[in-house]
Amino acid sequence: MTSDAILSVAGLDVFYGASKILFGVDLEVGRGRTLALLGRNGAGKSTTLKAIAGVAPPRKGNVRLGTSNLAGSRPDAIARAGIGYVPEDRQVFPMHSVEDNLAIGAKLGPQGQDFWKLETVYETFPILARMKERRAGLLSGGEQQMLTIARTLMGNPEVLLLDEPSEGLAPIIVQAIADLIRKLRSMGVTIVLAEQNMHFCLGISEDAAVIDKGHIVYRDTIQGLKANTEVTKRYLAL
């Protein structure tokens, strides 16, 4: 997998003020693959995604997309380089319509990719097409989650960072989100999925990494992780 990695993260150290949160985090994501980043509450999943996206700039380490090193760049430059970040708290623009939220995310990909535009997004997310005039702040949690994912896709990223897209949603909505991620995967989108819930990831991702107290403690396929009850017990409390 190393050779065809599209995103590789090496030796990331992140601090919030004086407290060190990430300790030399290494990750590799193959092109078109989906990596589940699993860990308990406060393990450092969100911080890892934020560091990759430049929202929480790493103090040390590399973030390579293709051949360019993005560590230390501003979030907007990282996004234009092809990393799309969907934050865990959704952050739709509540006063804007659904369509305006999407329009704000619109851009070409780093290689001029233009697959994702309003039509393709509405085709993939029919629910958003039905609500395009509605103010985003009025959408339900699940609809807002769909909207943030779609908004980031509008930027035609090469890698999509999804932070706990199932958090706080009703089971039926979680199912819909899982279907959506599978669909994106089948379309060839490379995804890093931060999750607490391994079962949610089982049918979605191929690869898995486990993070604990800011250290990557385990790397395998998701099936390998599932079979390793020692690890799942110790780090995922399953």
Binding site: D76, P94, D100
Partner: peptide
């Protein structure tokens, strides 16, 4: 649209590449 969104949430707008 961008400017109004950034008025509320500049960091999210910038994470979208703007």
């Amino acid at each position: 649209k961008i400017v109004r969104a950034a008025a509320h949430n500049a960091s999210m707008v910038s994470a979208l590449g703007i």
